[in-house]
Nucleic acid binder design. Structure first.
Length: 434
DNA sequence: TCTGGGGTCCTAGGACCC
DNA sequence: TCTGGGGTCCTAGGACCC
């Protein structure tokens, strides 16, 4: 925690709905709800006019419709939100080199890097108001709420205190008095599950939390969370504002209005999502080694399966093949409401740049067969060979094996899929490394 | 017909290595 | 033959955020 109120948090008010009202004057002053409009959609943002009726973010659209039937229900226009967000972030970056966006509508700004004459409360407050005015100007009238304090935590809590369209500075030295009467739920990281655990332990306010020993907190909430909350309860927070945080994963998922039961359809959907993930990886110059699928069953139980490849990929077809082989291990006979694919373990180098070749898009063909000497192959572990020479097994599923003809030390070659009875492909011993 | 989509971080167990 | 600790990587699941 700093000795000055030099961390600023900006939160744009009802951002998606505000952009819609800005761009369509007939929506101004009326309840606007942005989110999924399908049978299983949820509310992303409700305008303040809709919040009067009890509509909240994350509520099902069905319930929102029941509470506020006369609202305008809109699906998101993310291009417009991204563009507007970009203008806001540009204003912030012009104010300080150290800006940490948290999402399209939120960011931290380090005022210690802003070149202000001093960091007195009156000075930072005036600067915050100036930023709010600039945000309104570049966005065509959008409002934002600003909190300023001696840490990220305090700035974030402060931005909630005068919302919408307000500004709060928490004077250094007054943080703990401010926090004590507040509910534990205001602490970022205290969600429904943690709240319930604390409630059962008789802990409701931050003052209650302050009375708990560190050992007890760790016993209650685990190592990381326990130590973290122990400190936050005392307003101890020295997390720096970090610009340019690195992407850790890229994913695509979808919830379907009716549960899926057809495996071929599921495989096709996974392939489409994999293509989308591959496009986004390439757009950002990323590739990753771990492919994960996510499957939510009809009863909302959520499963994930992952496979880590010997070398990173940004190829949609390759991601899709691994995804489909992972799906093969799961029993989906009861119906699937959500399917998703993600890639993590990202490297920021691009295979194509290193090796000068793009993997050719392969047509979907009948799978040739793999010799029947084995029933299963381990991705990343087993090596087989066909006329191309040796190749790593990339994915293996029910009767299907995907082979990429490369090793950790050689450039990527083509990827091929075989069924387990193919005489064209024979298992080979794993070469000794080094 | 309760319960999105994009992420981040943490935990816990097993494999494997020294 | 038995015991053992530490570190890293991988997998699966869960909590949380906007």
């Amino acid at each position: 925690m700093r000795s000055t109120a030099s961390v600023l948090h900006l939160d744009l008010d009802a951002f998606f709905a505000a952009v819609e009202q800005r761009d369509k004057p007939s929506l101004r002053g009326k309840p606007v709800i942005v989110g999924g409009v399908g049978g299983r959609g949820v509310v992303a943002t409700a305008s303040y006019e809709a919040r009067v009726f009890g509509v909240r973010s994350a509520m099902s659209t069905r319930e929102a419709r029941a509470r506020c039937p006369h609202a305008a229900f809109l699906t998101g226009r993310f291009h417009a939100y991204r563009e507007t967000s970009g203008k806001v972030m540009a204003v912030l970056r012009a104010a300080s080199p150290l800006v940490e966006p948290l999402s399209l509508d939120e960011a931290f700004v380090d005022l210690a890097q802003a070149g202000l004459p001093d960091l007195e409360v009156a000075t930072v407050a005036a600067y915050g108001e100036e930023l709010r005015a600039q945000v309104a100007e570049v966005t065509g009238g959008l409002t934002g709420s600003v909190g300023i304090g001696s840490s990220k935590f305090i700035a974030k809590v402060a931005s909630e205190l005068d919302k919408p369209d307000g500004l709060t500075v928490v004077a250094p030295g007054t943080e703990r008095d401010l926090l004590r009467p507040m509910k534990v739920g205001v602490i970022p990281g205290v969600g429904p599950a943690t709240n319930e655990r604390l409630r059962r332990a008789g802990i409701h306010t931050i003052a209650d939390l302050e009375a708990v020993t560190e050992d007890e907190m760790v016993r209650l909430l685990g190592n990381a969370h326990g130590h973290g909350l122990f400190r936050l309860a005392r307003a101890q927070d020295d997390r720096p504002v970090v610009a340019d945080r690195e992407t850790k994963s890229v994913s695509s998922e979808g919830t379907y209005d009716t549960d899926l039961t057809d495996r071929k359809l599921m495989e096709g959907l996974l392939a489409r999502q994999a293509t989308h993930v591959g496009e986004r990886l390439r757009k950002h110059g990323l590739s990753g080694r771990t492919v994960t699928i996510k499957v939510r069953l009809h009863d909302f139980t959520t499963l994930s399966r992952s496979s880590t490849l010997p070398s990173p990929t940004d190829s949609g077809p390759a991601i899709g093949r691994v995804a489909r082989s992972l799906l093969a291990d799961l029993d989906t006979s009861g119906g699937v409401r959500l399917l998703g694919v993600g890639v993590s373990g990202l490297a920021d180098w691009i295979q194509e740049d290193l090796f000068g070749e793009t993997e050719p898009e392969e047509p979907e063909v009948e799978l040739p067969a793999l010799p029947s000497t084995r029933r299963s192959y381990s991705p990343g572990m087993d090596v087989v060979h066909d006329e191309m020479g040796p190749g790593w097994v990339w994915g293996s599923g029910k009767g299907v094996v995907t082979v990429r003809f490369e090793t950790a030390r050689t450039p990527p070659g083509p990827v091929r899929s075989y069924s387990v009875d193919d005489p064209a492909l024979a298992p080979a011993p794993v070469p000794t490394e080094g």
